[in-house]
Nucleic acid binder design. Structure first.
Length: 178
DNA sequence: CCCTGATTCGC
DNA sequence: GCGAATCAGG
């Protein structure tokens, strides 16, 4: 995708409304949040009303890590001749009471069927429905110790054989735990 | 771990 | 100009 005037105007609007870069990226589609942030900076409209995060950092120097190029070659970053020209910072320290930070939209909670876009690592990835179906979704409940929730884990990981020692284990636990 | 924006730099 | 990789932080 490219930054058409249409998409740029949407970006500007959503950014002005206080949406995060990732949210804007999802809404636009075809771009990552990095792309959105990059475009925001290029447009010069970064730095919204900072709610409570001054985020003052000294400028980072050259990236020290080597980079892997698409053809497989590895490039090392230049040693960066330590040109530390630190300018004396004078913080604006402005906090107008009439500028209110917009509330961030609610994130999707766990426990509801998740689409491929909203499915997170901590969610149960048990498929629900036909993958070809537009309504296809994943379980989305809390996944514990694996890719599935406790319920679906039982179905996914069938025990190889029946265990006939349950009563014995139960009695053992009774004896130990009281 | 989830998220946020900021920055650098090869393309 | 673009955006992935990375950083720094909540």
């Amino acid at each position: 995708m490219s930054w058409t005037e249409e998409r740029v105007s949407v970006l500007k609007k959503l950014w002005a409304e206080g949406h995060s870069a990732s949210q804007i990226a999802k809404q636009l589609g075809g771009v990552t949040r990095n792309a959105v942030i990059g475009k925001v900076h290029r447009l010069g409209l970064s730095g919204r009303a900072t709610p409570s995060r001054p985020v003052k950092r000294p400028p980072r120097l050259a990236r020290p890590k080597p980079r892997v190029m698409p053809d497989g070659s590895v490039k090392q970053a230049a040693p960066a001749p330590t040109t530390e020209t630190m300018e004396p910072r004078t913080a604006p320290e402005r906090a107008p009471a009439d500028i209110m930070a917009p509330l961030p939209p609610l994130q999707q909670a766990d426990g509801e069927p998740a689409s491929i876009l909203t499915l997170r690592d901590s969610m149960c990835k048990w498929p629900i429905g036909d993958p070809a179906d537009p309504k296809f979704a994943f379980c989305g409940r809390k996944a514990d110790c694996g890719p599935y929730c406790a319920e679906h884990a039982k179905v996914a990981f069938q025990p190889a054989r029946k265990r006939d020692t349950r009563k014995g284990e139960y009695d053992y636990v009774r004896r130990i735990a009281g």
